[in-house]
Nucleic acid binder design. Structure first.
Lengths: 192, 192, 192, 192
DNA sequence: TTCTAATCGAGACGGTACGTCAGGTCTTGTT
DNA sequence: AACAAGACCTGACGTACCGTCTCGATTAGAA
């Protein structure tokens, strides 16, 4: 979406964006993203379908923004480095277990496979902000954090997709695994 | 599918199954799972659509079988325990990077989120055989292997979905991470 | 539409065509053709929209068939030449005054202006059969009959479009005018 | 349209009306009335869509005015009564053969069927002026002229709609037919 | 050999969502 | 006020795919 509004013409309704994104998140909390129709989103947001297509060129773009909004930012944490990082990663893992975040992310991962632009958008809006937030506060390398994020998100999503759910213990395990790699470095091979 | 062929009536063509599964894998190698239509599969396999639906009740079920067939079995390995296990997990990670396996799996993960039966089928045909193969030959607990598989598959898939590709080094990292957990136990440090 | 049904595959439902054409005529009796939606026709005929589009490539083609069916054939007439011809033309004029025939014809005339194929279809299905029926029974030239038909239909339609209705006397006048030309020849100029 | 300009506020641009009507006529010369969008007219007239809707309440009203402007008035003719009347009717027939006049009229006829106000407007702006011009100069009854006009316009339009074009001879025939009725009276022979 | 029952090919069918388009209304800032 | 620009709502469009169905034509084993 354009960052600068054009100077002329009727300005865009300011509340439309939030209404549509919230409607999307709400509907996606009940059923999977593929089951949520643009018409249903429009109806719930009390907005015309054409208004949605004027702002987002596809369902996927809309989903990225809805995900970014629903996901939110990790809570601030003043504790010691390792502890705080672990908390942040754990928060992310917890968010992905929620139905709305999960449904959006899974649906997008499916479509991202066939759309490079969507991938870039997904990185820019979802992963990068989280990674940056961590890097700004503690001394960690961005590329390593990216991998940690992918491991955590991927593992949790895949586990739920395969088993319908994931236990608290398994989430802990995955987070531990990833954070351990983050600090010790990921190349701790089993062989001597 | 029926295990026993009925005694009367025209017998089913024996070569149909392989032709359809191969056609599915071939088409899914080029485009994403959602882009591959049943009609296209039927046309490529030179088979009627009805013939497909007589054997598989839905596109998803067909995809599971196609995935199982395309994925194949891990190569036999006579080496020492830890080394062989790592090789097996590494082989799995390598297979998931291939477009056909990846597209099928991602598409199925999407649908599995809203279909418990599909989840069960997916576990039974894809994850369990692999887990069993490992458990039979080496002393590892099934539930731990399951988690390792989910971590590896999920991480690799998610990485590719986010970045379009995954480097050899990152694959190594993920496999190391997972195998390390497999032997040390995943509960490295739940408490701070 | 294809005259010969293909030998293979599920045969087309025989009653669909009549149901759709009747539904079209019925709906077009109430409102103008442009106001009648394909969805409404499908709903009234208890048929899927796709089924309609399988048989008719556009709303206009459907309308031509609906018009041909609704219009019907001129009643048989054993009387003397001139009298019978006048009766036939009068019958045509009377039919065009009916809302369903009128709405269909006006809507088609509008679209025919931008579609040569539709024009040909319109001639073949509507005007030619009527002209032929007259030529077969009495000694009249086809091209002259065509012109007479165009004069009668055009005049009645235009009159109704301009005034909302046309009186019985005016219909008589138009028919007389046209039939007079038919027998005396149209080139009876006012000048000597 | 308002007859008196209000005293306060910015005065209306005087050249807008002509620009819009000309743009309409020009666009309608190429494609059919239904294919010409208000946005296209606005763009061609270098005028905002709101400016158009401030003057005309609908596309149809605009089209009526555009038609009246494009059609123009019959040329003055000082010859003897019958000859001049025939020339005037012939001029009208000739004008209707032009693409712009024809497209506008056909499109309006379609819409007039469902809109009584449009019918009245069409009569007042198109048919009545022509009829009056004839009545003022020669001794003919208005209602008869109206019928003649409807016959000529209807016949020519319908002929073109059915055949794509109309030959000069056929136009002559139609005009002769109509004018003949005008002078002899239309009730040549209602009874057999 | 004839009968029987299931398979196969071909394609019609119902249903659901898609993304687009045009008419007409409304809301800004500018003249 | 009028105007330019463009957002907005409404309603219909024609398309695509899924999964079901109905035919005629096969193709075996059973009677």
């Amino acid at each position: 979406m354009a960052d600068v509004a054009s100077r002329t013409g009727r300005p865009r309704r300011a509340d439309v964006e939030a209404a549509v994104l919230d409607a999307t998140a709400a509907l996606v909390g009940d059923r999977a993203y593929a089951q949520v129709t643009i018409d249903a989103i429009a109806a719930r947001a009390v907005v015309a379908k054409t208004t949605i297509y004027r702002r987002w060129s596809s369902k996927a773009e809309l989903a990225v923004d809805a995900l970014a909004r629903t996901l939110g930012d990790p809570p601030v944490d003043d504790r010691d480095g390792a502890t705080a990082v672990r908390a942040a990663v754990g928060w992310l893992a917890g968010r992905v277990r929620e139905p709305d975040v999960r449904h959006l992310l899974v649906g997008l991962v499916d479509e991202a496979g066939r759309d490079p632009e969507l991938r870039a958008r997904l990185r820019a809006r979802i992963r990068d902000p989280f990674t940056q937030a961590l890097c700004e506060r503690w001394e960690v390398e961005a590329s390593v954090v990216d991998l940690v994020v992918d491991v955590v998100l991927g593992a949790v999503l895949h586990r739920i997709a395969m088993s319908g759910d994931i236990g608290d213990g398994d989430v802990e395990s995955v987070v531990d695994l990833a954070v351990h790699a983050l600090f010790r470095g990921p190349t701790v091979s089993v062989e001597p």
